[in-house]
Protein backbone atom coordinates (compact mmCIF):
# COMPACT_ATOMS: atom_id res chain seq x y z
CA UNK A 1 0.00 0.00 0.00
CA UNK A 2 2.83 2.33 0.80
CA UNK A 3 4.91 3.74 -2.04
CA UNK A 4 7.60 6.39 -1.73
CA UNK A 5 6.47 7.82 1.61
CA UNK A 6 2.83 8.01 0.57
CA UNK A 7 -0.04 6.44 2.44
CA UNK A 8 -2.55 5.20 -0.11
CA UNK A 9 -6.21 4.38 0.17
CA UNK A 10 -9.11 3.63 -2.16
CA UNK A 11 -12.09 5.97 -2.47
CA UNK A 12 -15.24 5.86 -4.57
CA UNK A 13 -16.64 8.83 -6.50
CA UNK A 14 -20.17 9.42 -5.19
CA UNK A 15 -21.04 12.75 -6.84
CA UNK A 16 -19.68 15.13 -9.44
CA UNK A 17 -20.56 18.83 -9.16
CA UNK A 18 -18.88 20.71 -12.00
CA UNK A 19 -15.18 20.98 -11.29
CA UNK A 20 -15.45 19.18 -7.94
CA UNK A 21 -15.86 15.45 -7.35
CA UNK A 22 -17.06 14.12 -3.99
CA UNK A 23 -15.46 10.92 -2.79
CA UNK A 24 -16.09 8.47 0.05
CA UNK A 25 -13.26 6.31 1.37
CA UNK A 26 -13.77 2.56 1.11
CA UNK A 27 -13.85 0.80 4.46
CA UNK A 28 -10.98 -1.65 4.46
CA UNK A 29 -11.16 -2.89 8.06
CA UNK A 30 -12.83 -6.11 9.12
CA UNK A 31 -15.99 -4.01 9.70
CA UNK A 32 -16.62 -3.87 5.95
CA UNK A 33 -16.81 -7.66 5.73
CA UNK A 34 -19.53 -7.93 8.34
CA UNK A 35 -23.11 -8.48 7.18
CA UNK A 36 -24.40 -6.20 9.93
CA UNK A 37 -22.12 -3.28 9.04
CA UNK A 38 -24.97 -1.18 7.62
CA UNK A 39 -26.86 -1.39 10.91
CA UNK A 40 -23.87 -1.44 13.26
CA UNK A 41 -23.14 1.52 15.52
CA UNK A 42 -24.77 3.62 18.15
CA UNK A 43 -28.02 5.44 17.47
CA UNK A 44 -27.44 9.20 17.47
CA UNK A 45 -23.94 10.67 17.42
CA UNK A 46 -22.01 9.25 14.49
CA UNK A 47 -24.62 6.53 13.85
CA UNK A 48 -23.98 3.42 11.79
CA UNK A 49 -20.86 2.48 9.85
CA UNK A 50 -22.54 3.71 6.66
CA UNK A 51 -23.19 7.08 8.31
CA UNK A 52 -19.56 7.24 9.43
CA UNK A 53 -18.37 6.77 5.85
CA UNK A 54 -20.78 9.50 4.66
CA UNK A 55 -19.39 11.86 7.29
CA UNK A 56 -15.89 11.25 5.88
CA UNK A 57 -16.95 12.40 2.37
CA UNK A 58 -14.41 14.84 0.91
CA UNK A 59 -14.02 16.97 -2.26
CA UNK A 60 -11.35 16.56 -4.95
CA UNK A 61 -10.64 18.64 -8.06
CA UNK A 62 -12.29 16.94 -11.02
CA UNK A 63 -9.47 17.57 -13.50
CA UNK A 64 -9.26 13.86 -14.36
CA UNK A 65 -12.85 13.55 -15.62
CA UNK A 66 -14.17 11.33 -12.84
CA UNK A 67 -17.52 9.60 -13.19
CA UNK A 68 -19.84 8.55 -10.38
CA UNK A 69 -19.09 5.03 -9.11
CA UNK A 70 -15.44 5.09 -10.20
CA UNK A 71 -12.82 3.82 -7.73
CA UNK A 72 -9.63 5.86 -7.41
CA UNK A 73 -6.44 5.62 -5.39
CA UNK A 74 -5.83 8.65 -3.20
CA UNK A 75 -2.78 9.39 -1.10
CA UNK A 76 -1.26 11.63 1.51
CA UNK A 77 2.32 12.09 2.67
CA UNK A 78 3.24 9.58 5.41
CA UNK A 79 4.85 12.32 7.50
CA UNK A 80 1.70 14.45 7.14
CA UNK A 81 -0.39 11.64 8.61
CA UNK A 82 1.96 11.32 11.57
CA UNK A 83 2.06 15.12 12.01
CA UNK A 84 -1.75 15.26 12.01
CA UNK A 85 -1.93 12.40 14.55
CA UNK A 86 0.62 14.10 16.79
CA UNK A 87 -1.25 17.40 16.57
CA UNK A 88 -4.66 15.96 17.35
CA UNK A 89 -3.63 13.56 20.14
CA UNK A 90 -0.16 14.32 21.51
CA UNK A 91 -0.49 18.11 21.96
CA UNK A 92 -3.61 17.95 24.20
CA UNK A 93 -2.11 15.04 26.17
CA UNK A 94 1.19 16.80 26.83
CA UNK A 95 -0.64 19.98 27.79
CA UNK A 96 -2.84 18.01 30.20
CA UNK A 97 0.11 16.18 31.79
CA UNK A 98 2.06 19.42 32.23
CA UNK A 99 -0.91 21.14 33.87
CA UNK A 100 -1.51 18.17 36.17
CA UNK A 101 2.16 17.84 37.18
CA UNK A 102 2.60 21.56 37.90
CA UNK A 103 -0.61 21.79 39.91
CA UNK A 104 0.20 18.68 41.94
CA UNK A 105 3.66 20.10 42.66
CA UNK A 106 2.24 23.51 43.64
CA UNK A 107 -0.99 22.55 45.44
CA UNK A 108 -0.70 18.85 46.29
CA UNK A 109 -4.46 18.20 46.24
CA UNK A 110 -6.04 15.60 43.95
CA UNK A 111 -9.31 17.48 43.30
CA UNK A 112 -7.47 20.65 42.23
CA UNK A 113 -5.08 18.61 40.07
CA UNK A 114 -8.07 16.94 38.38
CA UNK A 115 -9.59 20.33 37.53
CA UNK A 116 -6.25 21.67 36.30
CA UNK A 117 -5.67 18.64 34.08
CA UNK A 118 -9.09 19.08 32.43
CA UNK A 119 -8.29 22.75 31.83
CA UNK A 120 -4.91 21.74 30.41
CA UNK A 121 -6.70 19.32 28.08
CA UNK A 122 -9.02 22.08 26.85
CA UNK A 123 -6.06 24.41 26.30
CA UNK A 124 -4.28 21.63 24.40
CA UNK A 125 -7.24 21.30 22.05
CA UNK A 126 -7.12 25.02 21.29
CA UNK A 127 -3.38 24.81 20.51
CA UNK A 128 -3.96 21.65 18.42
CA UNK A 129 -6.65 23.45 16.41
CA UNK A 130 -4.24 26.31 15.73
CA UNK A 131 -1.47 23.95 14.58
CA UNK A 132 -3.92 21.91 12.46
CA UNK A 133 -5.11 25.11 10.74
CA UNK A 134 -1.50 25.98 9.90
CA UNK A 135 -0.89 22.51 8.46
CA UNK A 136 -4.07 22.78 6.39
CA UNK A 137 -3.06 26.21 5.08
CA UNK A 138 0.28 24.77 3.98
CA UNK A 139 -1.63 22.00 2.19
CA UNK A 140 0.53 19.24 3.60
CA UNK A 141 -2.46 17.23 4.86
CA UNK A 142 -4.49 17.48 1.66
CA UNK A 143 -5.53 14.20 0.04
CA UNK A 144 -4.27 13.82 -3.55
CA UNK A 145 -5.40 11.78 -6.53
CA UNK A 146 -2.76 9.20 -7.51
CA UNK A 147 -4.33 6.87 -10.10
CA UNK A 148 -7.46 4.96 -10.98
CA UNK A 149 -7.97 1.93 -8.72
CA UNK A 150 -8.84 -0.65 -11.38
CA UNK A 151 -5.49 -0.24 -13.13
CA UNK A 152 -3.73 -0.61 -9.77
CA UNK A 153 -5.65 -3.79 -9.00
CA UNK A 154 -4.72 -5.28 -12.37
CA UNK A 155 -1.03 -4.45 -11.93
CA UNK A 156 -1.06 -5.91 -8.40
CA UNK A 157 -2.66 -9.10 -9.70
CA UNK A 158 -0.04 -9.43 -12.45
CA UNK A 159 2.75 -8.77 -9.93
CA UNK A 160 1.33 -11.41 -7.58
CA UNK A 161 1.06 -13.95 -10.40
CA UNK A 162 4.70 -13.32 -11.39
CA UNK A 163 5.82 -13.80 -7.78
CA UNK A 164 3.78 -17.00 -7.49
CA UNK A 165 5.20 -18.44 -10.71
CA UNK A 166 8.74 -17.59 -9.60
CA UNK A 167 8.11 -19.22 -6.21
CA UNK A 168 6.71 -22.33 -7.94
CA UNK A 169 9.84 -22.58 -10.09
CA UNK A 170 12.09 -22.50 -7.04
CA UNK A 171 10.06 -25.15 -5.14
Amino acid sequence: MDAGGLVEGIARVVAVEGAVAWLEPEVTTSCSGCNASSACGSPGGMGTLTDRVKVRRFPLDNDQGFVVGERVVIGVQECALIKASMTAYAVPLVSMLLAASMTQWAMGRDAVTLGASLMGLALGFVVARFIADRLRTKGSTTLRFLRRADAATVSTKIHTEILRSERCKTM
Binding site: G9, S42, V55, V76, A84, Y89, L135
Partner: peptide, 24 residues
Protein backbone atom coordinates in the same frame (compact mmCIF):
# COMPACT_ATOMS: atom_id res chain seq x y z
CA UNK B 1 -17.31 9.53 21.10
CA UNK B 2 -15.88 12.78 22.46
CA UNK B 3 -12.48 12.02 20.91
CA UNK B 4 -14.08 11.29 17.54
CA UNK B 5 -16.00 14.57 17.56
CA UNK B 6 -12.90 16.48 18.67
CA UNK B 7 -10.65 14.99 16.00
CA UNK B 8 -13.29 15.73 13.39
CA UNK B 9 -13.26 19.36 14.50
CA UNK B 10 -9.53 19.77 15.18
CA UNK B 11 -8.08 17.83 12.25
CA UNK B 12 -10.57 16.95 9.47
CA UNK B 13 -7.90 15.32 7.23
CA UNK B 14 -6.93 12.98 10.08
CA UNK B 15 -10.58 12.13 10.60
CA UNK B 16 -10.92 11.32 6.88
CA UNK B 17 -7.85 9.10 7.02
CA UNK B 18 -8.12 7.38 10.41
CA UNK B 19 -11.66 8.12 11.59
CA UNK B 20 -12.83 4.58 11.04
CA UNK B 21 -10.40 3.22 13.64
CA UNK B 22 -11.76 5.28 16.51
CA UNK B 23 -14.94 3.24 17.17
CA UNK B 24 -12.75 0.13 17.36
Amino acid sequence: QFTELTVRKVSPPLFQMLGIYLPL
